[in-house]
């Protein structure tokens, strides 16, 4: 296990590929032999600071810590904490890092976890900041891809939906681009295209190919993975724009019939209506397994950041 003790995880680029590989390797071992790790974090406390609603990320972090024998504390609604009295992020962190050994934070403001990490004496993990980054979803996605396809390089991946505010897309595309031979199909309405800065970064710092499409059908026959995303109501300042765009892309069985037999349909969840329920029983639909694997990815990450291996 590579030593990541004491480090923060704010963006996937905080980890090099060797470190990601170490996290993947331990996560796979945890999945295969869960009971062996039941005491790995005994005596450790995870603080979950969720300033924005979350189901999967928060619960999978809590499950991950509990499965390793540790404890959890925190809040999932800023209105029930001192934040509602006007406490700053800096002050909250300066106090909470003495109550816990590791912190995960979700915040609607972009860059908030980076700011928090400047004040934290214990490892701080970004659990999603606005439309910016979601590095632990990326670890979950990489683990899923690795377990189903056996590789993370030379992949053809279609990203579909909200590529502008979709933090899971930003984190994953930036990370997959670091592996050789990636081709990305970017499927989105004009208003929700990948941010120009990120596109420019990919073009300048990787050998990936970027292909922009307006229709899902243009990419489906070619790709190894279709990564669907939700059009996120909470990221829009204007409800009319959300209502106009929310049904832009829907994956149904007619469309899926055009895909490869071993293509993966992934989704960070929650879904609204962008994947028809009829798809759930298709063996290519791996989004619920993806959510399950998130627990192992987060167990492994926390074990690395806490510097516990104990095996």
């Amino acid at each position: 296990m590579i030593d990541l003790r004491g480090r923060h995880l704010i963006s996937p680029s905080d980890l090099d590929l060797r470190e990601i590989s170490s996290i993947m390797s331990l996560a796979q071992s945890m999945q295969q032999n869960l009971s062996s790790y039941a005491s790995l974090c005994r005596g450790k406390i995870l603080a979950t600071l969720f300033y924005e609603p979350s189901t999967r990320t928060k619960l999978s972090f809590e499950s991950a810590m509990l499965r390793m024998g540790g404890n959890i504390l925190g809040f999932s609604d800023a209105s029930t904490s001192a934040v509602s009295k006007g406490e700053s992020i800096a002050d909250t962190i300066r106090v909470l890092d003495s109550y816990a050994d590791i912190v995960v934070m979700r915040h609607p403001k972009e860059g908030a976890p980076k700011l928090a990490a400047q004040y934290s004496r214990v490892p701080l993990i970004n659990g999603g900041d606005g439309g910016h980054q979601h590095p632990t979803q990326t670890l979950t996605d990489l683990l899923t891809i690795h377990m189903y396809l056996g590789r993370t390089s030379h992949l053809k991946v279609a990203f579909c939906g909200d590529l502008k505010y979709g933090r899971t897309v930003h984190s994953l595309i930036e990370t997959l681009a670091r592996y050789p031979g990636a081709t990305f199909y970017l499927i989105s309405p004009e208003e929700l295209r990948l941010p120009p800065r990120l596109k420019e970064h990919l073009e300048q710092h990787s050998d990936c190919a970027l292909i922009e499409c307006r229709r899902m059908e243009e990419a489906l026959p070619a790709v190894d993975i279709l990564y669907m995303t939700r059009i996120q109501k909470e990221r829009f300042f204007n409800e009319a724009d959300y209502l106009r765009l929310k049904n832009s892309y829907v994956l149904d069985s007619d469309k899926l019939a055009q895909a490869k037999a071993k293509m993966l349909v992934m989704h960070p969840l929650p879904r609204v209506n962008e994947i028809a329920y009829e798809i759930d029983s298709d063996p290519r639909a791996v989004y619920f397994k993806q959510a399950e694997l998130g627990v192992y990815a987060r167990m492994s990450l926390m074990a690395h950041l806490l510097g516990v291996d104990g095996l």
Partner: peptide
């Protein structure tokens, strides 16, 4: 958060474009 001093890194000198240290937007 008013106590945070914005910090930027030069992205493109010709257009005076700077990347935010926190949110990474230009």
């Amino acid at each position: 958060d008013a106590y945070v001093i914005p910090l930027f890194h030069l992205h493109d000198a010709r257009s005076l474009a700077y990347v935010c240290e926190y949110c990474e937007e230009i």
